[in-house]
């Protein structure tokens, strides 16, 4: 059965936000745009866009075989040219982050591959890639301990902390942060910084990002439930269709 691709737009202003300037760029996602992979997602955050796909659990090369857990591999491809050392670093960060979210011990002697293709980078590509990878893993149906949400944050040229800036706001930035939170206790899975900053700025950025991560978690929940409700609809016969639809509607009301 081919499931219809699903796309959803989310208004980030409407969620339970305390701080006034807590705004992420608009998040859009299309699930399963690719047909050959186990799970894929086209994820955009503002102008930044990535295409992620995952494959697994599949057969593993003998050199990577681990008898206790699955081997996780990430491939990150930049928009143009061959991957540079910076891209390798991004790749390692994404790999480690995804591995800590996955329940790898459930699939020993296998491998899980995550592929990420950068489509457009208008600031915050790392955070976007991690979020996209998480959605691909969720759609791919591999067991996870928790979901992860990455938020990008900078200290701009006036020493102000800006949440999820676009490339215009990021000109002349002093420092940049990528925070990845888990969905359970909102603790830090990954922290990746560059540039020099004060501890106070770090705390501000961390608090803002933590609050903003809830927007992304809500987005995951909404898009995944929409996706599965829709596939439920197409799978059912016409006679039961109306019945299911009412169920779907009531569920959506709850959300």
């Amino acid at each position: 059965m081919v499931t219809p691709p699903d796309s959803i737009t989310m208004d980030t202003q409407g969620s339970n936000v305390v701080l006034q300037d807590l705004k992420l760029r608009q998040i859009n996602c299309e699930l399963n745009p690719l047909t050959r992979s186990d799970g894929s997602a086209l994820f955009t955050q503002g102008g930044t866009c990535v295409l992620t796909s995952m494959l697994g659990p599949v057969e593993v090369k003998s050199q990577n075989l681990n008898i206790e857990k699955a081997h996780v591999e990430c491939i990150y491809r930049p928009k143009a040219g061959i991957p540079t050392i910076e891209d390798k670093l991004t790749e390692t960060v994404i790999r480690d982050t995804c591995e800590s979210a996955l329940l790898t011990m459930l699939h020993p002697r296998t491998a899980i591959f995550i592929q990420i293709q950068e489509l457009d980078d208008r600031c915050g590509i790392e955070a976007c890639a991690i979020n996209g990878a998480c959605l691909a893993l969720l759609i791919g149906g591999v067991p996870m301990k928790f979901t992860i949400a990455a938020v990008h944050c900078i200290v701009d040229k006036d020493d102000k902390v800006v949440l999820d800036p676009d490339h215009c706001e990021a000109i002349g930035k002093r420092a940049s942060f990528v925070f990845v939170f888990d969905s359970l206790d909102k603790n830090l899975v990954t922290v990746h910084t560059s540039g020099r900053f004060r501890m106070g700025q770090f705390n501000d950025a961390e608090c803002m990002s933590r609050a903003a991560s809830q927007i992304i978690f809500n987005f995951y929940r909404r898009i995944i439930s929409n996706f599965h409700n829709k596939s439920l609809l197409t799978a059912d016969s016409k006679a039961r269709n109306t019945e299911v639809e009412s169920v779907v509607k009531s569920e959506q009301m709850d959300i």
Binding site: T92, V93, R95, D96, T97, C98, E99, S100, F181, D182, L184, D185, N187, L188, V189, T190, V191, H192, T193, S194, G195, R196, F197, R198, M199, F202, N203, E206
Partner: peptide, 21 residues
Amino acid sequence: HEDTIGLFHKSGGVPISVKEI
């Protein structure tokens, strides 16, 4: 360096809280 941080890198692993940081 003094009161500034130039690098903070944590890649994956178990989540940690702000207190530990």
